[in-house]
Design a protein around this nucleic acid. Sequence first.
DNA 1: AAGCGCTGCTTAGGATGCTAAGCACACTCC
DNA 2: GGAGTGTGCTTAGCATCCTAAGCAGCGCTT
Lengths: 136, 136
Amino acid sequence: MTCVSATPNSPLSAGSQSLGAYLKSARSALGLSLRAVEERTGKAVTNGYLSQIESGTVTQPSPNMLYHLAQAYDLDYGDLLVRAGHRVPHSDDTAQRGILAGFPMHALEELTEGERGELLDYIAFLRSKRPSSRGR
Amino acid sequence: MTCVSATPNSPLSAGSQSLGAYLKSARSALGLSLRAVEERTGKAVTNGYLSQIESGTVTQPSPNMLYHLAQAYDLDYGDLLVRAGHRVPHSDDTAQRGILAGFPMHALEELTEGERGELLDYIAFLRSKRPSSRGR
DNA sequence: AAGCGCTGCTTAGGATGCTAAGCACACTCC
DNA sequence: GGAGTGTGCTTAGCATCCTAAGCAGCGCTT
């Protein structure tokens, strides 16, 4: 047991901790070993790799990895994303219309995904049909 | 309507578009060149790399890349994340972000009045092509 | 024709995520 | 002592992302 750090660091209050330090605190708080976490994530995060993350050898794990860790530690996934330096979609506003006020949006809403794809292609087709402008 | 059989010519037409095909449609609808997009993203996404994404050579671009593309095309960032196979924070309630989330409104804004008319006709055409029931 | 600029596309190579395997140390239990 | 198990940690190597540089083709201008 080489390290068992002494600092009782509550992972929830960590302000500017690096991702690795934060995850290490979290694991320590839960009293889990590296391999226990590997087990918890269903082998999605191997113990060696987790060690790399905690030590800072790996600085930006993929969202998928972070998700599994969030699950294993019961942490907030979005928070982990931010700590890893990923952008998080701010999923709020749905309404800025503007020029399109006249356009019947519900017509679009009724389309299926595939139909919307076709529509995009048709828009491209309309543009390609225009007199001379090549791409703009 | 002019029509000219735009449907069969569609390179992707239907179903669940791959990320690449979707991004290609979006770019095409906006009438942007690969290098124009590179410019728009402030060189964050190079033209060659974008080509790789569209062609499927690169299947899972980083969230950061997707963010820049979402900005450039005025698409929903979260939607792109999902299409790229990344997990999205609040995705417990799966499908119900804005239905129009994936649609590039800019593409509509740039159309002329007449073209918008044709587009509406085409939407009507799409709907008429369906197997009648409107529930879905 | 020659040159220019734009188009999409390819490719070598560096950087990084990520895995599988193994190391050294510490604690048992026979 | 020796075997077995658990700990954190390291490392070779592969896969993938991503960049920089370049390719050929097309249309336009002189």
